[in-house]
Every structure is written in C-alpha cells, then in structure tokens.
Nucleic acid binder design. Structure first.
Lengths: 144, 144
DNA sequence: TATTATTGTATCGTGTACGATTTAATCTTA
DNA sequence: TAAGATTAAATCGTACACGATACAATAATA
C-alpha cells in the first residue's frame, strides 16, 4: 500500500508536468501565429469539422461554455472564426472558420511538425504512450 | 507525413484530456477537504520536504511565483501552511506545514487511494504509462 | 394553447498558469 | 565601501478551466 501511494504520487506529477511541458512547447511555436495551445486545439477540431455548435465543440474538446464562450469571442476578435446564431434554432450558435484559419493551416501544422520531429520521438513510443493514456482515460471516465 | 500529423493531433488531445480527467477525479475527492488538485500536489511536495523556500517549491512543482504566491496565500488563509520570511536571508520566504496538514494527511491519501483503486488500474500498466510520460518529458525538455 | 420542463449560451466567481515588471535584499567588485 | 549586478518574491495582465447561475428559445404535455 505504501508503494501504491508512492506510485500514485509519481503518476500525478508525471501527467501534470508532461502536460505542462507539452503546452510550453506548443506555446513557443504558436505564439508566432498569435495562438494559444487551447486555441490551437480548437482549430484542430474545426479543421476536422467546420460549422458546429458551441455544444458540439464542447463535447469534442471536453470543455464547457464557461471556458468556450470567452475563448471563441477572443478568437473571433482575432479573425480566426465567426459566430452566428442559428436561424432554425436560435438557441444554437454556429462556429465558422474564417479564411485566415484556412490559409494559415499549412504554415501552422508544418511548424508544429518540424518542432515535434526535432524532439526525436519514436513513432512506436508515441503510439504506446497514447494507448496508455487512452486506457487510463477510459478507466477514469468509467468511474464517474 | 500526413500520418504523423494525425498522430500528433491525437497525442495532443490524449495528454490534454487525460490530464483533465485526472484532475476531475482528484477534484471530486479533494473538495471534501477544501483542497484543489494543484494545492494537493503542493502538499505532496511539502509532506516530502517541509520548510522550503518558494523558489524550491517552484522547482519541484515546475511553477513560478506568479502562480505560487497567490496559491500559498490562499492555503495559508485556509490553515494548511504558514509563510515566514527567513531571518538569515530576508529575500527568502519559508513555507511551513501547519498541524492541520499533518493531521489530515492520512485521511486525504487514504481517500485518494480508495478512489484510484476503484478505477482498477493495473500496476504494470501504470508503470508503463509513467515511463512513457517521463520519456516524452525528457525529450520535450531537451529541446528547449 | 398555456404552463412547465428542457436545452443552449452567456455570465460570474474562484483558482490556476505564465510572462513581464517591480521591489527589496544580498552579493560583487572595482 | 559604494555602485552595479544578481536574486527571491510579489504584483500585474492575459488566458484558460470549471461549477453555478441566469436567461431566452424551444419542446413537451396537461
């Protein structure tokens, strides 16, 4: 049991700090484009599927409106996207990518890829890690 | 290259969301004790080594004073710890655990262990994952 | 159809995170 | 030892993150 707690403590720090390091790497690349890491994740989601409601986006990103609304407002102000209330159901707000987001996509992802490759991360290792993370996520979610 | 970007995207989300799920699990347990997850991590560090400077704590947790100072102020107000300016070098502020933190330690860690065990996480899997995270962390750090 | 329940966003309050600046204490070294 | 450099915290501004609440639009149903 003592060992278990030590292990648990180490996992806490490992996830917390890896996530933080990861964010920092991305931040350093993204600030050239005037983007934050969460904003980049939001763009990743929109590049995959455009013209979605705030709710849909929230489900994709695991975020509530308390986080999304102000974030979307900022990104709209910066010209990445456009918000428009749905005509058919005025409760919904639809998010549309702006030209800027479509045009810069390549430049952004290329730069990211370049930096990531610079870390010499082995693909196999990468996949292993992701599998582990997803496994843990499932178990964490299942509990709730 | 196309595949690489897809993979990279998946890792982004995997780390981001696992970290978020992890935080949520801990938050649900910790709120009973009036603690947040970052505050719990801070206590973990202090239980390991008490009577440290803000700077030391920052190195352990990978946090700057912009985050720590207000956090320590809140935790002092809640009776978890005490801040005291060092007599020998008045630039340093030393952090001391309060009785409350020592007394509640067992209750807190027991409750956490209980919840984690509830997730049926295999120890082997756990260790694998951590190894992967630490490996990634090293590579991310090395780049800077 | 008038009432009630539900749904989708927005808003608010609290608590991280982090870079940049400020301030006070200590250290260097000319 | 006095001027300048360095160091440790605090402070400030911006940006998440999240629970709780508010509010307007739509759906359900009596």
């Amino acid at each position: 049991m003592k060992d278990f707690l030590t292990l648990e403590k180490q996992l806490c720090f490992a996830i917390y700090q890896t996530s933080s390091e990861f964010t920092k790497l991305y931040t350093s690349v993204l600030q050239t484009f005037g983007l934050t890491y969460p904003q980049y994740l939001l763009l990743l989601a929109l590049w995959e599927k455009d013209e979605v409601t705030v709710k849909e986006l929230g489900q994709t990103l695991n975020l509530g409106t308390g986080t999304l609304t102000p974030m979307l407002t900022r990104m709209e102000a910066n010209g990445w996207l456009r918000k428009e209330r749905s005509k058919t159901d005025e409760r919904n707000v639809l998010i549309f990518l702006q030209d800027k987001a479509r045009k810069e996509k390549q430049a952004i992802t290329n730069k990211i890829a370049e930096e990531i490759l610079d870390c010499h991360i082995e693909i196999e290792e990468y996949i292993q890690l992701m599998r582990g993370l997803k496994g843990l996520q499932e178990k964490l979610k299942g509990r709730t």
